[in-house]
Structure formats: structure tokens, C-alpha cells
């Protein structure tokens, strides 16, 4: 028999995991929220999702082609970025604005910093913040097309209502949970987001405690500050908290690598969110908090190094 042997370093077997499979899992976990967004906000939500994904994918393709780099679309991370960004925008945002955001996320935040694994901030969040600063239509949210008995004239989000003190106008907690409230297309349906959370935890893609610590921090602090359990519940069901906690505070690339660091990161996100919501009276704190903690990540890493077994 012809024997042509190769030589290679150990180990000689692999677990079979891959970056692509992980990204595929994230996409699967986002699907319930994507479906809910179309049900709640209509076909415009679907168009927003498709446009953002297409823009992200094309941006990455063009960047790699122009800079003569190997194509990396196969790892699916551009799809995740596009989808996440779309879910973070409301139906008040024009499709071209969404496309521009996705392009910014991939081109500036990801590719210019060296591509997959090298960006210091979450591309989708940074793009959302960029759009927020560039266009006033991005702030706040829009009401779902399904009438939930709330005052349809007011397009104020629950957080804006709380800030204004008009707590009587808040939708019922059940409606908050199902997504029948104003907001971005993907953030409102908590039920769908929790399904994604359970899936990601079960698939061991994310650690359960990162979103849990983030959300609990906001809950406990809100309860203390407002003195109302009811309002604290509204606080955690409002805004982009659940979406951000499950899908963005758990982003590998832009968060710490050790368990301790990840806990600290989640705690920091929660505290900053509360500070922005209450101290600065600015309704949307989640995006800024995650972005801010992304920037602190290298310092958190230094604080939370493991002590090796048998080491010093």
C-alpha cells in the first residue's frame, strides 16, 4: 500500500466546534425576535432586517475584495451584525439609514480594526450609536402596528413615559412582555428574546450569568431608586435591555475572556444603564453602557486574571 505520511503537532482530534457554527447559533437564537418584529411592526421590519443584513454582507465582501483579503463571509458574523443592528432600529428609521449603519458597523468598526476578532467595540451597537447621533429619527421608538389599547397617538416609549412621570399611560406588564409597546423592532418582544437566551445558554454559546447579572443589576437598582417593584419591572422590560444583555453584552470579541471579568462587565453595564436612565434622565442607556464597558474591557482583563493551578 502506498503510504504517504504527514507530521503534525498534537492534539490530533478536535471537538468539531467552529466560529461559523457559533454564529449560526446566534442567528437561530435571534430568529424568534426577528419573527416577532415582523408580526409586531409589519413588513417594514422584514425589509429593515433584509436591508441591514445585505448591507453588512456586501460591505464586508467589498472591503475584503478591495484590500485583497481572504473572503470571510462564510463565518456568518456579518450576517449577525446586520441582523442585530436591524433589530436595534425602529420603523421610524429609513431603510437607507439602516443600510448606512450596517455599512458603518462592518466597514469602520470591524474591518478597519482588522476584521473578525479585532474590533474593540461591538459593531452593531456602535452603528446604532452612530445613527443615533447622526439622525434624530433613530432615538426612541415607534409603536407596533398591532393596537394594544394603548394611546396610539403617543409614540412615546415606556421609558420616555416613566421619565415624563406619565406612568398611567404605560402598557400592561403582559403587553410589555409580549412586545406590545413602542420601541425598536427587535427589543420589544421579551418572550422571543428569552427563547433566544435559553437556546444560547443550552447550546453553551453564552454564559447564563452575563445577561442575568446585567438585568438583575438594573432591576435591583431601579427598585431601590424608584421604591416601586412595579416600576422596576417596567425598567427591565423596557428599552433595549434584554436584547442588549442577551445578544450584545455576551459578544465574545468585545468583552472580557475570564468568568470574573465577564461578571464585572455585566455588573458595569447594569450600573451604567441605571445611571444613564436615572441620573442623566436619558431614556436609552443600554447601548451606551455596553459601548462604554467595551472600552473598559482591556482594563477589566488586567484586573481579573486567573491564578494558574500550581502557579504564583
Amino acid at each position: 500500500m502506498e503510504v504517504n505520511l504527514i507530521s503534525s503537532a498534537s492534539p490530533h482530534i478536535h471537538s468539531g466546534s467552529s466560529s461559523r457554527l457559533i454564529m449560526a447559533d446566534v442567528i437561530i437564537a435571534l430568529l424568534p425576535a426577528a419573527v416577532a418584529s415582523v408580526i409586531l411592526f409589519g413588513t417594514y421590519a422584514l425589509w429593515m432586517i433584509l436591508v441591514c443584513i445585505a448591507s453588512a454582507v456586501v460591505s464586508e465582501f467589498v472591503f475584503n475584495a478591495v484590500t485583497a483579503k481572504e473572503q470571510t463571509l462564510g463565518d456568518l458574523s456579518a450576517v449577525v451584525t446586520g441582523l442585530l443592528l436591524a433589530l436595534n432600529l425602529s420603523t421610524n428609521v429609513a431603510l437607507w439609514q439602516g443600510a448606512l449603519g450596517a455599512c458603518f458597523a462592518i466597514f469602520v468598526v470591524k474591518c478597519l480594526f482588522g476584521g473578525m476578532g479585532h474590533n474593540f467595540a461591538n459593531p452593531a451597537i456602535t452603528a446604532r450609536v452612530f445613527l443615533l447621533l447622526a439622525f434624530s429619527s433613530v432615538a426612541g421608538g415607534a409603536n407596533p402596528i398591532i393596537n394594544a389599547g394603548v394611546d396610539a397617538v403617543s409614540s412615546a416609549t415606556p421609558l420616555e413615559l416613566i421619565t415624563q412621570g406619565s406612568t398611567d399611560a404605560l402598557p400592561a406588564l403582559k403587553d410589555m412582555f409580549l412586545g406590545l409597546r413602542g420601541g425598536t423592532i427587535g427589543e420589544t418582544c421579551i418572550l422571543a428574546l428569552l427563547v433566544g437566551y435559553v437556546y444560547l445558554v443550552a447550546r453553551k454559546v453564552i454564559k447564563w450569568y452575563i445577561p442575568a447579572i446585567f438585568v438583575c443589576t438594573v432591576f435591583v437598582c431601579s427598585w431601590i431608586i424608584t421604591g416601586s417593584l412595579n416600576l422596576a419591572l417596567y425598567e427591565i422590560l423596557s428599552g433595549g435591555l434584554i436584547l442588549g444583555a442577551v445578544f450584545m453584552a455576551t459578544d465574545y470579541v468585545t468583552t472580557p475572556i475570564h468568568a470574573g471579568g465577564r461578571m464585572l462587565f455585566a455588573l458595569g453595564c447594569g450600573l451604567i444603564t441605571v445611571a444613564i436612565r436615572f441620573v442623566f434622565s436619558y431614556p436609552e442607556g443600554v447601548s451606551f453602557s455596553i459601548l462604554f464597558m467595551n472600552i473598559l474591557t482591556p482594563w477589566i482583563e488586567k484586573l481579573t486574571r486567573n491564578r494558574p493551578l500550581g502557579g504564583v
Binding site: H14, S17, S18, G117, H118, Y252, V253, R262
Partner: peptide, 26 residues
């Protein structure tokens, strides 16, 4: 089939190696 290795892709900082290391190394 059992001898081939997939080409290396960029590190995504997932932390699985840190978690897997029995000695807590990074």
C-alpha cells in the same frame, strides 16, 4: 479524513481555551 486539520481562523475571544485549560492558563 481523520488526519486533516482545518485552517486556522482569527481568534474570536470566546474564552473556551481559558475554560478548557485544566491549569487555568490563558
Amino acid at each position: 479524513k481523520d488526519s486533516s486539520k482545518k485552517p486556522a481562523a482569527p481568534c474570536i475571544h470566546c474564552g473556551r481555551c481559558v475554560e478548557a485549560c485544566p491549569l487555568n492558563l490563558n
